[in-house]
Amino acid sequence: GGSPPQDNNVNNNGRGPLNGGMKLRRTHSQPPLGAVPQISIPGLDTKRKLIDYIWKEEWYGATARCQQSPGEVRHWSETRNKKGKIMWRKLPIHAVLKMGKHWQPAHYELVHTMLQMFPESAQCADENGDLPLHIIAGCKNVSSPQLAQLVLSYNPKAIQTSNSNGMLPLHRAYAGGAPPAVLQIIYNACPQAAQVIDGRSKLPIQYLRAPRER
């Protein structure tokens, strides 16, 4: 798959080559893991909705709620302004992938559970036209190779899908400062994306040169 393009004039915060010397295999169309074990939490509040657990970053509680109330995994939440324009519209998986201060195994298990219950969610875009893969690429704090491979396996075509700003996941990865291993996975899945210009007339690599514009 090669290495993602780099700008040698850019300070990479001492991280070295963006590919980190890693050789990662391409992802495949089938989920890489088996079924997520059922989680039982004594005293789980049945009145709390899935989104409530997500906002508070209670990942084990959210996973248990998914198993208790599977329909909520498919529930869209949205906010409109006074003119009726949609300002915020997301599935729980979109919200989960944006949350969290750092990657945790429980966070991964929750995303895995959601994808098993609603595989089509990997093909659903939020109000910005972002698929789950775009969100993973653009959120460096919670992004991980495991999450990137998992979501990509449920929707391989996402790697060639642009959001409302014409950005592919590779644009989002560069613009969001994705970890080197995540950037490598996204690049390997579609090296040609490095030559695609987005809605701002930028190649993915050009976002490294304009950190204040991210």
Rank of each mutant, 00 (worst) to 15 (best):
I197V: 13
L183K: 08
A106G: 04
V151C: 05
S153F: 06
R214T: 13
S162G: 05
P145R: 01
A125G: 04
A35K: 13
L208S: 10
A137I: 01
Q6W: 02
I54D: 04
A148G: 08
N81G: 12
Q68N: 13
N13K: 15
L33T: 10
L97I: 07
Y207P: 03
L131Q: 01
R74K: 15
Q6Y: 00
G166K: 07
S69N: 14
G34D: 14
P191I: 04
V10P: 02
S40N: 14
L133H: 04
N13I: 00
L97F: 11
G84P: 04
A106Y: 06
A148P: 09
P179R: 14
R89K: 15
I93C: 06
G166M: 00
R48L: 13
G166Q: 03
K82R: 10
S164T: 07
Y60G: 12
E127H: 14
Q30S: 15
A178W: 02
H28C: 07
G199E: 02
L33E: 12
P92N: 03
P179A: 11
H28D: 08
N12D: 10
K101N: 14
F118S: 10
P31F: 09
S121L: 01
K23Q: 15
V36A: 13
L131W: 05
H107V: 02
Y60W: 12
Q192T: 14
G20Q: 15
R25V: 07
W88Y: 14
G166S: 11
N128T: 02
I205F: 05
I51L: 10
N165I: 00
G177R: 10
A106P: 00
F118L: 00
G177F: 09
A125R: 09
P42H: 09
A122K: 02
E58D: 15
G16T: 06
N13S: 13
R26I: 07
P5E: 01
R214Y: 07
R214G: 10
A175E: 08
L24H: 08
D7R: 13
G100K: 03
N128L: 09
I54G: 06
N141P: 00
I186H: 11
P180K: 08
K85L: 01
L44Y: 12
G100M: 04
H171G: 06
V111E: 05
W55E: 15
G20R: 10
R212T: 11
I135C: 05
P4K: 07
I205C: 02
K202Q: 13
L50R: 03
C139V: 14
L147W: 08
H171D: 04
P32L: 11
N12V: 09
C190V: 00
E120S: 15
L110A: 07
I54A: 04
L150I: 01
F118I: 00
T79E: 13
S153G: 11
P37K: 01
F118H: 13
G1L: 07
M167L: 00
D126Q: 02
S143T: 04
P5M: 02
L97H: 08
N19K: 11
A175R: 10
Q146G: 09
P180R: 10
K47D: 11
P32F: 03
T79M: 11
